[in-house]
Design a protein around this nucleic acid. Structure first.
Lengths: 380, 380
DNA sequence: CTGAGCGCCTAAAACGTTTTAACGACACGA
DNA sequence: TCGTGTCGTTAAAACGTTTTAGGCGCTCAG
């Protein structure tokens, strides 16, 4: 029985087979012609039937495959015309399944923040969209397990690679990855970083020139991937400039989930600084957001900026220039860094080359109103 | 010939067919067992071969299909165990292709901004990720043709629906869509909006209580989807409160691409306002960003806030509280609006129901330091 | 008259799932 | 002995592409 049914199913003579096919072709053709708009969605096969060609031919032509070179100009034009007329749009899921390419990458950020992440993402988005890529975005709120999970889920979703912003990643992902402001070098992961030594020099030299000696710092939050290196650079640079970073003036702060972000961290950090009683005339904050939070605390405490205390930020986020006074800060070229990260990743994807270990960009000091000559030491 | 080859190809007797199959099964089984880690990527078929079951069975069990009810517990356990042991992860492209579901939506924003969009997106992301959805993000920079193009491209990428933030959309998209702060009602598009009349009343009443009569406004940028309604509400509400919005105090501003955003628009708007010579004691800005830009202009011109001029913003973005003085503003519950938008869209997707035409949320007045009793009219 | 080569096109497999219809085996009642 | 039914399982089609290997019908040289 099973033998029979199997045979019956498959062993059709060629002529019958062809006839059946022709009929099917004519029918579906008629359908398309009768109601070109009702038809749910035009597939490659619909275009092929409409032209009395095979899907293979149409695909070859539309994709400008070298194999299609031998197909006469006339036919090619017919194909293009039909595709246009029927408004054929290839099903990208099917294509991706077959070609094993999705033209999408995963972007992981600690949080969709107002400052840093938004700046980088603008660059990433710009470059990716220009190259026909899309990205899936996920925020892991600096939780290592959430980060790991998103890496896996995004891989399941067939992204071709990752861009990791300020994320503490522990091991090389299973897909090509580019990190921005990562805390350490990982085998095979290109890292786009700011030149922290230059950044520290710019900020500290500026403060020294204004006569500051007692400089407080926010070394940064432990869950922020950039913190360690930035803090190391400050510690190493200060003595070279004849400055001393006193332990009692280094205040740990944290960025919090949801709402405040680093604003609150900066605010309470500044309060603790003032409460400590240690004298200081300037603060080099971890980033603009924490600098702005700290400013609020100084002002609330009756201190004047920059008369009583100077503040230097880091990043130069959009709003930095619009605070009162305008925030003096070390600018990171965020948008460019985003573009750089995207570009590096896409090159890795097409070359297959591992790419550079590290790409360094230069910071720039933007002097605005929050820094002035050192006065009497505040807080003492 | 073709007849023959076709037959030769298909007309294998059942027994041979089975034998071949068995052999293949044993081989691939052996392969898996010999080197379970070398094998590129575990497919459903690999799990099936490992268990000497068919892919169908494994799929049925893993997906807890009702059809699998008749499969004995013992087998089901074996299937789950094998899937776990081999670390099987289904190929979502293939699944999506077959099921015609992708569990992803498209999110369109004018720009990845520091304020409004970031706030909403936080909500959107929160809800979507909780429900196992992902989103593709695109920014159209308020260009209608770019918006249209992204709608098409995202549809090509098989998103199941759209969330549109503050976007001027002209016609109902071909997929279920939810708009946030859209300018007008579109057939079949749920609109999540703030109660603009209440918002206007809160702000204007507050200013009136402080004795302000000459109140300047930024009616908003023509390319911002929210502007019209907000402006209408102000025009209608003012007379009810016994206030007059003088035409010469209504200043058109624009949000610009890249960099500045509305900061610059607010800054130059305030400059034009002052230059016009028309007296005013307060400004109700279009949003926080433009309010902050305007503040900068007032301060640069030597005006004091709020002594000379009071400023009210709109949105309550994160940084609003940290400006100096703190910005008095009409809060939109941005995160909640994002969650609401996502939730509404997902319900539409699962119900198939068209969903409500409009979902209204309530604003709240947050009084901080930029508003005070009206003094002498500035600018006059 | 044959065989090679070319021009044009296509069959069929492949990508990795889901799902429907049905199959074999066995039990049970008539 | 013959349905009838249930149980456990599966073949095969389907989703919509891309791509390889090759087919068919010519022409033209030998």
């Amino acid at each position: 029985m099973s033998n029979d049914s199997l045979s019956r199913h498959f062993c059709i003579t060629n002529s019958i087979y062809s006839t059946l096919k022709r009929r099917a072709k004519r029918e579906s053709l008629a359908f398309v012609k009768r109601s070109p708009d009702v038809s749910k969605k035009i597939r490659l096969k619909d275009v092929a039937d409409y032209l009395d060609l095979s899907p293979a031919t149409v695909s070859l032509v539309l994709n400008r495959s070298p194999v299609a070179d031998s197909i006469p100009k006339r036919t090619q034009e017919r194909v293009f015309a039909a595709a246009k007329k029927l408004d054929y749009r290839p099903n990208l899921l099917a294509r991706s399944l077959r070609k094993q390419r999705t033209f999408s990458v995963g972007v992981l950020v600690p949080e969709i923040s107002e400052g840093y992440a938004a700046g980088i993402m603008r660059g990433v988005e710009h470059h990716l969209s220009q190259k026909g890529y899309f990205y899936l975005l996920a925020s892991h709120r600096s939780k290592p397990d959430l980060l790991e999970e998103y890496l896996a889920v995004l891989k399941d979703r067939s992204v071709e690679g990752f861009i990791l912003l300020a994320s503490r990643i522990e091991s090389t992902p299973e897909l090509p990855a580019v990190a921005v402001s990562s805390h350490r070098q990982l085998e095979g992961v290109t890292n786009v970083v700011i030149d922290h030594d230059l950044a520290a020099r710019l900020a500290l030299q500026h403060l020294k020139d204004l006569g500051h000696e007692r400089i407080a710092v926010f070394p940064g939050a432990p869950d922020n991937a950039d913190a360690e290196d930035r803090w190391r650079a400050i510690r190493e640079t200060a003595p070279r400039l004849g400055l001393e970073i006193r332990p009692e003036l280094a205040i740990e702060i944290t960025g919090e989930d949801y709402g405040g972000g680093f604003y609150k961290g900066g605010y309470t950090g500044a309060q603790r600084l003032m409460a400590s009683g240690a004298p200081f005339t300037a603060l080099f904050a971890f980033n603009d957001i924490s600098a702005i939070g700290a400013m609020r605390a100084f002002l609330d405490a009756g201190s004047k900026i920059p008369e009583d205390v100077s503040v230097v930020g880091f990043d130069d986020i959009q709003s930095a220039a619009f605070h009162n006074p305008g925030l003096t800060t070390v600018r990171q070229p965020l948008r460019e860094m985003g573009i750089l990260a995207a570009k590096t990743l896409l090159e890795r994807l097409s070359n297959g080359s591992p790419g550079p270990d590290v790409v360094t960009v230069k910071p720039e000091l933007i002097v605005r109103g929050t820094t002035g000559t050192a006065g009497r030491a505040a807080g003492g």
